[in-house]
């Protein structure tokens, strides 16, 4: 491995990592919102919304992000919907992640016994107040481990962004391998930068999970 080469590549990888992180975080933020909305619609059994949410969850969880992106980026412009690559990346990640986040929230909501909601209702709360003040705070603590796992999963999934010519880490690595045949250095930096992004999130996730387990509410 050539130190000089690695040093000269560093700025390229730094910019690429920044792009990965930025789009990744935006996509994850949207996926959390979509997931929460879908889980709430499923939980409250809102007539039409609940069925729509269920269908969406199945579709997003049973198709690969790469295909979703190809469709968004190359397919949609053909029917007149113009987008740019970055928007596609965020939208694709949000579409994929929304389904996974919804399932994570749902597992939390289902873990809270119905009697908790009834007890809130008997205190005169509305359905929404019961969900907001009583069920959701408890459900969230159950949902945190799967939510964190989804965050790591979605950050990993950003690696396919290069397919819609976003200059992320994969794109940079492939570019450098193709241009200069500096395979070893390029791959080394690729792994190093992904570890830099993913390891802290993954470790934070397991720490949080352990803390929650000790603090376990236990009725």
């Amino acid at each position: 491995m050539d130190r000089q080469v690695i040093l000269s590549y560093l700025p390229l990888y730094r910019d690429a990592a920044w792009l990965t992180l930025r789009l990744g975080c935006m996509g994850i933020a949207f996926s959390l919102l979509i997931g929460l909305a879908c889980a709430a619609a499923r939980y409250r059994k809102t007539p039409i919304l609940s069925a729509l949410a269920a269908a969406y969850i199945e579709v997003s969880r049973n198709t690969p992000l790469l295909i979703q992106l190809f469709f968004l980026y190359y397919g949609l412009p053909k029917i007149g919907i113009r987008t740019n690559a970055a928007a596609c990346g965020v939208a694709g990640l949000a579409f994929l992640g929304g389904g996974y986040m919804a399932e994570a929230f749902r597992s939390g909501l289902e873990a809270i016994p119905l009697s908790q909601k009834e007890s809130a209702l008997s205190l005169g709360m509305t359905e929404f107040q019961a969900l907001w003040h009583v069920v959701l705070p408890q459900a969230l603590s159950v949902s945190v481990p799967p939510l964190m796992a989804n965050v790591v999963f979605l950050l990993k999934e950003t690696s396919v962004f290069s397919a819609v010519s976003l200059m992320d880490l994969m794109f940079t690595a492939k570019d450098l391998i193709g241009l200069y045949y500096s395979t070893t250095e390029s791959l080394f930096l690729l792994v190093a930068f992904y570890l830099l992004i993913l390891l802290p999130v993954s470790v934070a996730g397991s720490l949080l999970e352990r803390r929650l387990r000790y603090a376990g509410f236990g009725v």
């Binding site: 009697s115 908790q116 009834e118 007890s119 809130a120 008997s122 009583v134 705070p137 408890q138 603590s141 509410f217 236990g218 009725v219």
Partner: peptide
Amino acid sequence: RIGMVFQNYELFPH
């Protein structure tokens, strides 16, 4: 206007 107390307390654990 009606208070209710349950067999299993149903306090809010959080």
